[in-house]
Design a protein around this nucleic acid. Sequence first.
DNA 1: TTAGTATATGAGCATATACTCACATGCAAG
DNA 2: CTTGCATGTGAGTATATGCTCATATACTAA
Lengths: 122, 122
Amino acid sequence: MNKLQEDACLCRIIHTDRVEKARRAALETREHQRLTNIFKAMGDPTRLRILFALSQEEMCVCDLAAFLDITESAVSHQLRMLRQLYLVANRRQGPVLYYRLTDEHISRLIAIGLEHLRDLNP
Amino acid sequence: MNKLQEDACLCRIIHTDRVEKARRAALETREHQRLTNIFKAMGDPTRLRILFALSQEEMCVCDLAAFLDITESAVSHQLRMLRQLYLVANRRQGPVLYYRLTDEHISRLIAIGLEHLRDLNP
DNA sequence: TTAGTATATGAGCATATACTCACATGCAAG
DNA sequence: CTTGCATGTGAGTATATGCTCATATACTAA
């Protein structure tokens, strides 16, 4: 049976409709990429701490460096990525750049993630 | 000035209160780790597509492999990670394991991420 | 039990990435 | 203009990770 040679798994033949349905509903490529980048950005310990700190109050680079106990260079690298994804924005006051979250979606994402954790027993 | 030798950045002295406030408000370590892992899991193109597909309908491993056009082994590896983080759960029906999202938080995270994207012009 | 199907897992490799270091840029006050 | 502080950036390195391949496990049907 040629069909089985190509697709050893019977499931793939029987349930093709589910696959087709998923394909029709799938995210457009560009949107998928951008969404992946947002979660990837939030999926790093350092960046998540930055975002969580900024969800409380705006901070400058050296504030964040002191808070995270890493170099200002490392902070700046991460902020650059977060800026490019429009997760954070800044305003200048004299020589200092104060960073904040771009909008409330980010803190909502963090809040829902925490809800998920707390709704689990272990 | 010794203070300046330690911390060249004046900002760090002036704005210490912001750093202290951030430290008090910071997430507990274990919670921070688990939250990071959730976003890291969602921040991979393959896993995000899996989660998005499962947000529409439950699917088995070979469904997902066909949908994503990757090997069932690769899917299984990713599902293992998602299972360990309690992002997905499964039920057995005969020899087939059907996977679904553990709860609605996950699809809400995806929805809010998309909202964030769509609220941006570019 | 045995054979067959669906899924899981361990090892290994190729790539991605987070940090450090050195240096560049930008702004503000003289 | 020059000086000094705050931040940005490029290159290099050490680690993390997503896939493939081979094999193992779990369940069903006979």
